[in-house]
Amino acid sequence: MYVPPLRPPNHDDTYISGEVTIDPSAAIAPGVLLQASPNSQIIIGAGVCIGMGSILHAYEGILEIETGANLGSGVLILGKGKIGANACIGSTATILSSSIEPQQIVLPGSLIGDKSRIVVVQKTVAGIDTINETASFSPEE
């Protein structure tokens, strides 16, 4: 599927709030929100890439993105934890108060973290919970 080409940002659209440290060699796309709550911080290492529209929200500790890690677009990372060096986080994935090992890959659209908090919703077309369906990308099976 063709994806419409990206527009260059008119200005630097990154929103930064709280204690946030970014290595100058990190590449951060437009529309990214970096928010560190009080007593928390975000550290972004060298050569890190963060995709369009991602949100990093640190609370209750340090959220660190180590050297060379790549985050796709629309990634949501909340709480504290460490994304290991050269890890790859697929687009629209959600990571809650968890750490990812160096070199590891997180599939697009997945959820890592506290599963007990997931909203249970009604059955879908397939008679499978939307939860399973979206998490596994498996449509009407």
Binding site: M1, T124, V125, A126, T130, E133, P139, E140
Partner: peptide
Amino acid sequence: IQDVEIPAGKYVPSGAV
């Protein structure tokens, strides 16, 4: 809805591919 022709008056449920 991709690579198909849907006849008039049809219903496609949510989440269908």
